[in-house]
């Protein structure tokens, strides 16, 4: 499997995710935002960070980058795309995923480990999770409050397009374990064709027992599962 991590000015999890991809034997290359064409690739990763300083709206300016046209073409062909944190925000601004990410309800940046329930394992990113698995991953964001109108929420729920929901340690999806105010505790969504995943938590930060867990590793091993 080959991957391309797009580097925007202000990306800061590009190296972290490249390290994770390589750890699981995915052949990765870094792609500069100003390039017009993706190299031959199976997976495109939009990494976390503060592309363009989060100025104007998070992810907005990056979504106007030259490379994005080819990322959209890649998506239309059914290619895999993973957007983590700022990458998720860029995917939404680029129109590749629905909804919008508002400021956290507490109006503060939040960096902590959260519990997540895996609610869809029927996609390439989550194949190795078990349905309803409770996992732990770090979040680190200021604008992760996923908001969708009623009709969209219903569509996402009905079509099973939600990958992860914030939950408590027992797997209960309740308000107290919703760190940022997201509608229906949504932490990650997938596209209708299930080839695009956008998520606020950082799987690439938890791939090592030394760093108190490996729940993120499973996402990467899923990617290479045929």
């Amino acid at each position: 499997m080959r991957s391309s991590v797009i580097v925007f000015p202000g990306s800061n999890c590009d190296r972290d995710v490249a390290v994770a991809l390589e750890k699981f034997h995915i052949k990765n290359q870094m792609v500069w935002h100003n390039d017009t064409n993706l190299p031959k690739t199976d997976l495109v990763v939009l990494p976390g960070g503060f592309s363009y300083g989060d100025y104007l709206r998070t992810g907005c300016i990056a979504s106007k980058s030259k490379i994005i046209d080819d990322v959209i073409r890649h998506a239309k062909k059914g290619g895999l795309i993973l957007g983590i944190c700022n990458g998720f925000q860029i995917l939404i601004e680029a129109g590749l995923l629905p909804g919008i990410l508002l400021r956290n309800i507490g109006l503060r940046f939040l960096s902590k480990n959260v519990f997540l329930k895996v609610v869809n394992t029927d996609n390439q990113f989550c194949l190795n999770y078990k349905n309803k698995d409770i996992i732990q991953l770090p979040i680190a964001h200021n604008e992760g409050n996923f908001f969708a109108k009623k009709e969209l929420l219903k569509m996402l729920e009905d079509n099973n397009l939600i990958a992860f929901k914030y939950c408590n340690k027992n797997g209960e999806i309740e308000e107290n374990s919703n760190p940022n105010g997201s509608s229906n505790n949504i932490a990650g969504v997938i596209s209708e064709k299930k080839n695009i995943l956008g998520m606020m938590p950082h799987p690439e930060r938890l791939i090592d027992p030394l760093l108190s867990g490996e729940d993120g590793s499973i996402l990467f091993t899923s990617l290479i599962k045929s």
Binding site: G53, Y55, I61, K64
Partner: peptide, 14 residues
């Protein structure tokens, strides 16, 4: 104005 600066540059790039 860092934000204005970044927006200005993007407008030009567009």
């Amino acid at each position: 104005d860092p934000q204005g600066k970044a927006v200005n540059q993007t407008i030009k790039n567009m």
